[in-house]
Computed example of a mutant assay.
Amino acid sequence: MGELAITGELVLHPVQLADPGIHYVYDDDQEAAAATRAEVLAGLRAERAILATAHFPDPFLRL
């Protein structure tokens, strides 16, 4: 089925799910944030995780 992942500040806009390289203006290190986001999202996709998001209109979605 997949795990539940509480994303916190990992993704701030749904478009970052399609392109984790899209920067967020308040990331201290935008390149490191994008690389981390891509790595974590790839792992969550492999697990078919359910995301509990704080910043999306719908709080839960499946990767």
Rank of each mutant, 00 (worst) to 15 (best):
M1Y: 10
M1R: 14
M1P: 10
G2W: 06
G2M: 10
G2R: 08
E3R: 10
E3L: 13
E3K: 08
E3F: 04
L4E: 09
A5F: 15
I6Q: 10
I6W: 08
T7C: 14
T7L: 15
E9H: 15
E9T: 08
E9L: 13
E9I: 05
L10C: 10
V11C: 11
V11P: 01
V11R: 00
L12P: 00
L12Y: 01
L12K: 06
L12W: 02
H13T: 09
H13Q: 14
V15C: 05
V15S: 15
L17M: 12
L17D: 03
A18D: 15
A18N: 15
D19P: 01
G21R: 13
G21H: 15
I22E: 02
H23D: 07
H23N: 04
Y24L: 06
Y24H: 09
Y24G: 01
V25M: 07
V25I: 11
V25K: 07
Y26F: 11
Y26K: 13
D28V: 09
D28I: 07
D29C: 05
D29K: 03
Q30F: 01
Q30M: 08
E31G: 03
A32S: 12
A32E: 12
A34W: 00
A34E: 00
A34R: 00
A34C: 06
A35H: 14
T36N: 14
T36S: 12
T36H: 13
T36E: 10
R37N: 07
A38N: 03
A38D: 09
A38Q: 05
A42E: 15
A42G: 13
R45E: 11
R45F: 06
R45C: 10
A46E: 15
A46H: 13
A46Y: 13
E47R: 15
R48V: 07
L51P: 00
L51N: 01
L51E: 01
A52G: 11
T53H: 05
A54T: 13
A54Y: 12
H55C: 07
H55Y: 15
F56I: 09
F56W: 14
F56H: 06
D58H: 12
F60G: 04
F60C: 11
F60N: 05
L61F: 10
L61S: 08
R62Y: 04
